[in-house]
Design a protein around this nucleic acid. Structure first.
Lengths: 235, 235
DNA sequence: ACCGTATGGATTGTTCAACGATCCATCAAG
DNA sequence: CTTGATGGATCGTTGAACAATCCATACGGT
C-alpha cells in the first residue's frame, strides 16, 4: 500500500500551483487596470466609462463591472451611484490617515523583528540593495518600486498574509497621492540612506533604533508629500 | 454675495447623507448575505448556487455575482473558478493568524489611548455595560455582539477608518470560526470581567496594564477556540 | 439678470437569454 | 485498481434590451 500521509513533494506541488491557477477574466482585467492606475498612466479624477473601457479591453460591460467592483473595494476607484467609476483623487486628510496607519502597523511589524526568521531580514536587505543599485544607475522609477518592496518586506515581519494584502492596498493608495504631485519618481530617492540605516538596526535586532529610523522616515515623507500636494493644489 | 467657504451646516449635511444614499442592489444583497453568514444561519462550507440564491433573493445572476465578489473580497466567501462560491471554512491556521493580527493591531491601538479623545473611551465603556446588561438578562447572542462592539471600539482608538473596516472583516471572519464550533454564543460570556478590567486600565490611561489584560484575553480566547475547533473536528 | 422647471441625450443599473468551458459523478474497459 | 469516456449541471462571458438616473441646455416667469 502507498503511504497514507502525503509525501513531501506533494505539498511542494500544492504550494507551487498557486500562481498557476489563473484568475477569471474580471480579475485579469482588474490587474491591468490596477497597474495602469498605480503607475500613474491614468490620472486621478479620470472617469472610466463602462462602454469606452470595455471596448478598449475587449470585454463585455458585465464583466468589466466585476473588475470595477474589485478595484473600488481596493479604494483605487470610487464608485458613484448612477454616475460611474472614477480614479480616486486622494485628499490630504487621506494622506494623513495613510501615514498614521503606516506608523502604527509598520512600527508594530518592526517590533516583531525578534521572532522573525533570518529569511525575512534577507528580503529587506535585498530590497535596499535593489534601490541603491537603481539609484546608482539613475533609474528613478525602479528606486520607487524598490522602496515599495522595502516597506512590503518590513510588513512581512509581522507574519500575516492578510496584513500584507491590506498594506499593499494602503501603499497602492499612497502611490495615487504621489502621482497627484508633479514628479513622483524622485520622491523616494532621498530616503535610501535611511533605509540602509534601518536595515542595519534590524539586522542587529535593535528594535528601539529601528523604530526611531522608521518614524523619522515616515514623518519626513508625510511632510514632504503634504507640502507638495498643497503646492500643486494652489499653483 | 454668499460665503465662498462652505458653512458648517453644509459639511454636517454631507456627513449625515452617508446612510441615506442607499447603495446599489448588489451592495444590499451583499449586506443580506453577510449578516446571514456572520450570524451563522448559513453554515461554513455551504455552496451558494448562483441560480438558487438568485431566485431566492429575486435578483439576476449578474447582479448576484457582483455581490459575491464583494463578499469573496471580504474573505467570508471563497470563490473557486468554475465551481462557484462557498461559505468559507476557517482553518486552524487561519485562527492563529487572526489572533496574531488582533494582538498586533488591538495592542497598537491600546497604546494610542494617550492621544485618544474621551469620547472614544466612553464608547468602550458603553459596550462593556451593554455586555454586562445582556449577560444579566441571559441574552447570550447580545453578549457576543457586545463583545464585538467592545473590540471595535478599541480599534477605533487608533483613529483610522480604514483600519476599522479592516478589523471589522477580521472579526467577521473570526465569527465564522466561532460558528464552526457547536455553541458560539456562550463563548464571550467568560470575558466580561476582563473587559471591565481592561476598561478601567484604559480610563486611567494605564497603557501597560491595558496591554496585559488585552493579551491575556486574546491568548485565552485563542486557546479556547482552537481547542473547541479541534474537538469538533475529531468527534 | 435670476430662479425654477421642463426637456432630451447620454450613461449607468439591472435583467434576460444564450452558448461555450469546466467540473464532477458515473460507468465501462483495461 | 487505475485509466478513459460520457453526460449533466453549473459557471463564465457575452450581447441586447429597457428602466432609472444624472446632466446640460433651453425655456418661461419674475
Amino acid at each position: 500500500m502507498t503511504t497514507h500521509t502525503a509525501p513531501g513533494w506533494v505539498t511542494a506541488l500544492e504550494q507551487a500551483k498557486g500562481p498557476l491557477g489563473r484568475g477569471s477574466t474580471a480579475e485579469r482585467i482588474a490587474d491591468v487596470l490596477r497597474t495602469q492606475v498605480t503607475d500613474g498612466h491614468i490620472a486621478p479624477g479620470t472617469r472610466l466609462s463602462e462602454e469606452t473601457v470595455g471596448a478598449a479591453l475587449g470585454v463585455s460591460r458585465n464583466t468589466l463591472r466585476e473588475a470595477f467592483r474589485l478595484l473600488a473595494h481596493e479604494r483605487l476607484l470610487v464608485h458613484e451611484l448612477n454616475r460611474g467609476v472614477f480614479v480616486r483623487t486622494p485628499h490630504p486628510d487621506d494622506v494623513t490617515e495613510l501615514y498614521r496607519l503606516r506608523r502604527l502597523i509598520e512600527g508594530a511589524a518592526v517590533r516583531e523583528v525578534a521572532g522573525a526568521p533570518d529569511r525575512a531580514i534577507d528580503e529587506i536587505r535585498r530590497s535596499v540593495e535593489e534601490g541603491e543599485q537603481a539609484a546608482a544607475e539613475q533609474r528613478w522609477p525602479d528606486v520607487a518600486t524598490a522602496d515599495l518592496h522595502f516597506h512590503r518586506a518590513i510588513v512581512r515581519l509581522a507574519g500575516s498574509p492578510r496584513l500584507e494584502a491590506f498594506m499593499d492596498r494602503i501603499h497602492a493608495e499612497l502611490r495615487l497621492a504621489f502621482h497627484a504631485t508633479g514628479d513622483p519618481q524622485r520622491f523616494h530617492a532621498p530616503y535610501l540612506n535611511r533605509n540602509r540605516e534601518l536595515l542595519t538596526a534590524l539586522q542587529t535586532r535593535d528594535t528601539r533604533q529601528a523604530e526611531i529610523h522608521l518614524t523619522a522616515y515616515l514623518d519626513d515623507s508625510e511632510r514632504q508629500l503634504l507640502r507638495t500636494l498643497h503646492d500643486t493644489a494652489h499653483p
